[in-house]
Design a protein around this nucleic acid. Structure first.
Length: 679
RNA sequence: CGCGGGGUGGAGCAGUUGGUAGCUCGUCGGGCUCAUAACCCGAAGGUCACUGGUUCGAGUCCAGUCCCCGCAACCA
């Protein structure tokens, strides 16, 4: 069922505006999508590449509350940081929009109204969890409890991260409010649901049969597991005051669920762009000969492959994504990137620390993009890739060619005479590159494409080394000219095929060679540089990155680690009575054994002087069971008992926790009798 | 039997539909000296975790085993 594609609609996941963008986002979404969009434009395709800030939802209201500002102030701040840094990195969005914009409110609202008028929603008055202490309805994400499927005790209200099941908060057994820790109460509220179950059969056919071979296995597998479990109607509205008001009767105080409105943001952005440039947005979303591609991270698969397509299908006018090339996650120096722990390389900081080196980060992140599995970013690797690949192979080749041309011919492109067999071979290889690179990009294999691009530079270096024009120039001028001409053609081709990956350097190169922006279809030709034209003086495309710069970055990360381990600040005051309420005694460990199937737990038997009791303690990483028998410890004996891993724990052993998390017993300095009180 | 990812030359990784095992870094030797001590060539180094199976042929498919790493869980 191949159809001719007339235009492309490329979307990049909308960054959630409660923090800046980091390298994980870039490697997963923005670099690949930008390469794809630039590649298509170079092929003269009709492309719209959209993105924008995702500015609604509960987490933003919480950040706002914490910082004592309005949600709008929070999103304004990050919208600017994110938008500016994307621009500086050269991410070529046709528009970077935002979901708090009026255009988006209107579009999302209309979308809802359309489905509403067609009777495609289920309206349900249901009982939702309500936190009486905080005086608000609780978003699914802010309720935790036991998963009905796998019995995991810490499932979230929207999804169990343990078994991956998509849930409703009311499915949870023993729910708890994540805001206050209270048990939430059920309160009646009316909501609109999209009956996903009605689209299940269709989704199965569309994805499981239709995209078995062209979607990535991680995406396909994820979808399959959801579809196999069966879909439930899903609420598309929420009780909240931050978002897009629900355009229906009896919907006061309700807004569209952020996951309903966010993907519509792609559509609004396209509309705004069309308006700005006097275009018609509709074909990009409604015409069968348009190809829609969503670039996302793996955390977004269900929304882009199941929910949003169901919305589009329900609406009826829209086309569906042709592919959703989701990437995995990028780690940083071996540890998971974490916004809350500040364990990240933030784009806006990188741009400050390494001014003018946008292409280096673009290159490295593409080369190490987590296309098939989680991957690791290290600064050492960043340095090596820059120094040995960008500088040593690409930059050096260009420099050699340009320097020689200037030296021998004062920058004038020499004429090509008779070709040797080897010349012909090299030109044939050159000609094959663009197609190879295209093929990889079209299959969303950007690492592979990048490697091929680099191989073209390698071909150039090899050609020079084999032909040694610096020797021949003394004996055979004609031959030397031919060689230099061919080397220059390779350089010119590099400027074309490397543009999607490293646009800043490609442009520098074009300028150096005196070329206009060339199109992809011209790549592979052996006459991009016309004989007699003049090129400019050599200018380095890339510079080496010194050890000191890498060390500075590593120190920055080290500082973050230390900051995370800072001595904890003082807790709120308690009364003397509160303190006296705790009964702490000296006890002696008389038996200890590891609790099976746990990493941290030891089951201790302790003589407290009062009795002999069992205490489960999370110290197994620091103490071996057999080594602590006979040790005296401090025990909080009147703590309510609790079952841990099926063992009744009657108290708590007091531990000193060091900055690095290491635990040590708090004990009397001399042996004391069991049951001695501690106060 | 919680979920997932992985085990390929010293290190880090590719290996798409099964058909002579590749890349980058490192090491050693050589070439070149146009070039940002960069470039080019060559060499050493792998029983592709293990065991069975399918096949003319398996790193690649199937079954099982072992190990590692995330996440989750456990921490009163």
């Amino acid at each position: 069922m191949s159809k001719e594609v007339k235009r492309y609609t490329i979307t990049a996941a909308l960054p959630y505006t409660n923090g800046p963008v980091h390298i994980g986002h870039l490697a997963g979404v923005y670099i690949p999508s930008d390469i794809y969009a630039r590649f298509l434009r170079s092929n003269q395709k009709d492309v719209v590449f959209v993105c924008g800030s995702d500015e609604h939802g509960v987490p933003i209201t919480i950040s706002a509350k914490k910082e004592g500002v309005t949600p709008q102030q929070v999103v304004d701040k990050y919208h600017k940081i994110i938008g500016d840094s994307f621009k500086e990195l050269g991410v070529s969005f046709d528009i970077y929009h935002r979901t708090s914009d009026a255009m988006h409110h209107e579009t999302a609202s209309d979308f809802f109204k359309h489905l509403h008028n067609e009777g495609l929603f289920i309206e349900k008055v249901s009982e939702q969890y309500y936190d009486e202490k905080e005086n608000e309805f609780l978003a699914d994400r802010y309720i935790t409890g036991t998963c009905p499927h796998c019995k995991s005790e810490d499932a979230y209200g929207d999804q169990c991260e343990k078994c991956g099941t998509s849930l409703s908060a009311t499915d949870l057994i023993e729910p708890k409010s994540a805001l206050s820790g209270n048990k939430p109460v059920l309160k009646e509220t009316k909501h609109w649901f999209l009956p996903l179950d009605k689209y299940e059969a269709w989704l199965k056919e569309w994805i499981l049969d239709g995209h078995k071979s062209d979607w990535r296995s991680n995406v396909y597998g994820q979808c399959k597991s959801w579809l196999d479990q069966g879909l439930q109607p899903r609420a598309v509205t929420r009780d909240l005051d931050w978002g897009i008001p629900v355009p229906a009767e009896g919907a006061d105080g309700k807004v569209l669920y952020v996951w309903f409105d966010a993907p519509i943001g792609y559509i609004s952005a396209t509309k705004q762009w069309a308006k700005d440039y006097g275009k018609d947005w509709e074909p990009y979303w409604k015409s069968d000969d348009s190809k829609l591609v969503h670039f996302i991270g793996k955390d977004n698969i269900v929304f882009h492959c199941v929910i949003f397509p169901s919305m589009l299908k329900a609406h009826g006018d829209y086309i569906l994504p042709d592919n959703v090339p989701a990437n995995e996650f990028l780690n940083l120096e071996g540890d998971k990137i974490s916004t809350s722990k500040n364990w990240a390389v933030w784009l806006h900081e990188y741009l400050e620390d390494f001014p003018g080196l946008q292409d280096v980060m673009r290159y490295v992140l593409c080369a190490t993009a987590p296309e098939t599995k989680d991957n690791d970013f290290t600064w050492k690797d960043f340095q090596t890739r820059n120094n040995s690949e960008l500088v040593g192979i690409y930059g050096n080749f260009i420099n050699r060619v340009v320097v020689l041309t200037n030296k021998y011919y004062e920058g004038v492109v020499p004429e090509r005479e008779e070709l040797s067999d080897y010349d012909k071979e090299v030109l044939a290889e050159l000609k094959a590159f663009p197609a190879k690179i295209s093929k990889s990009i079209e299959a969303y294999r950007f690492r592979e494409a990048l490697m091929e691009m680099m191989n073209l530079a390698r071909l150039g270096n090899k050609y020079l080394a084999d032909e040694e024009p610096w020797k021949l120039v003394k004996t055979d001028e004609v031959r030397t000219k031919t060689i230099m001409n061919i080397a220059l053609q390779i350089a010119a081709n590099l400027s074309v095929v490397s543009e999607p990956f490293i646009p800043f350097s490609a442009e520098k190169l074009r300028t150096m060679l005196g070329l206009d922006q060339l199109l992809w279809e011209q790549a592979g030709k052996d006459n991009l540089l016309v004989e007699g034209c003049k090129i400019k003086k050599a200018e380095l495309l890339f510079r080496k990155i010194e050890d000191a710069e890498i060390e500075a970055q590593l120190e920055k990360l080290e500082a973050t680690k230390l900051a995370n381990q800072m001595v904890k600040s003082q807790k709120a005051n308690v009364s003397f009575d509160d303190f006296c309420a705790m009964d702490i005694r000296v006890g002696t460990i008389i038996a200890a054994e590891k609790v099976k199937k746990t990493k941290k737990l030891l089951k201790l038997t302790i003589d407290t002087g009062i009795d002999v009791r069992t205490v489960v303690s999370g110290i197994a990483e620091y103490y071996q069971a057999e080594n602590i028998i006979g040790e005296q410890v401090s025990v909080l004996v009147n703590l309510a008992s609790r079952k841990i891993k099926g063992i009744e724990s009657q108290g708590m052993v007091l531990m000193a926790e060091d900055k690095d998390g290491a635990l040590r017993f708090v004990k009397p300095s001399d042996v004391s009798s069991n049951g001695s009180t501690i106060a």
